[in-house]
Amino acid sequence: MFVRKLATALALVLATAGVASAQTPTRIQQFNAWGAYSYQANGGKVCYVLSVPKEKTPPGVDHGDVFFLVSQRPGQNISYEPQAMMGYPLQENSKVNVVIDGRTFVMFTKGNSAWVENAAEEPALVAAMKNGKDMQVQAKSRRGTGTAYSYSLSGISAALKQIEGCR
């Protein structure tokens, strides 16, 4: 089941990145709840870490495949860009909140994904992920259903270190 979800995630990452001619992603290594991956794209090598939620609420709702990832694309000067990916369309003009140790980071939405609203806060979110234990992600579906996801941050630091030298 986990492998199927990761395969779906890899396909979603490629589709979201708009990479038509990318090669199949390669799993570099798994670090507890976080896996490190890479693939070649037109703009060069892309590396990212990815995890799936350990809990999804509300129960009884089809959440689809839900992921949180942090990517870097050295060829495009993108370093450690957090992204939430839902298995459903998000409500237009809504916000996704990421909460770590009482600190909230706000993400803007487009389609089924969300990115940090203020790009200057991306390093702070990544630092909070490295130093935190758990992360909560709160979103609203296009139908108006409030959803919440709990992620373990166990392994995030090692996974990010693994892709540190992505070139």
Rank of each mutant, 00 (worst) to 15 (best):
T145K: 15
D101P: 03
A33N: 12
A114S: 05
S71W: 14
V96T: 01
A148Y: 08
E117L: 12
T109K: 00
V126H: 00
G75S: 09
G43P: 07
V70H: 03
V116A: 07
G146P: 02
N112F: 06
T104Q: 14
A158C: 00
Y48P: 01
T104P: 05
K56D: 03
W115F: 14
P59M: 09
D65V: 11
K5Q: 14
S113L: 10
G75N: 08
L50A: 07
V98M: 06
G102L: 01
K5A: 15
E164C: 03
K54Q: 13
V19A: 15
A139F: 03
P82K: 08
F67M: 05
E117K: 13
A128P: 03
L160W: 05
V116N: 05
G155K: 02
D134M: 12
P89S: 08
R103G: 03
F67I: 02
Q162N: 07
N93M: 06
L90I: 01
G155W: 02
L69K: 02
K95W: 04
G165K: 12
S38N: 10
A120E: 09
Q162V: 00
S154Q: 12
G43R: 10
D134A: 10
N97I: 10
F105C: 05
A22F: 07
A124G: 02
A84F: 14
S79M: 12
N93T: 10
F67D: 07
R27A: 10
A17S: 15
V19M: 15
G111H: 01
Q91M: 07
A148D: 12
L6R: 13
T24K: 13
L50W: 00
V61C: 04
D101Q: 12
M85V: 08
G75K: 08
C166R: 02
W34V: 08
P82N: 12
P53F: 03
V13S: 10
M86D: 08
D134V: 10
L50C: 06
K95Q: 09
Q83M: 14
L90C: 00
A20N: 15
G111K: 01
S21G: 09
T16R: 13
H63Y: 02
P82L: 06
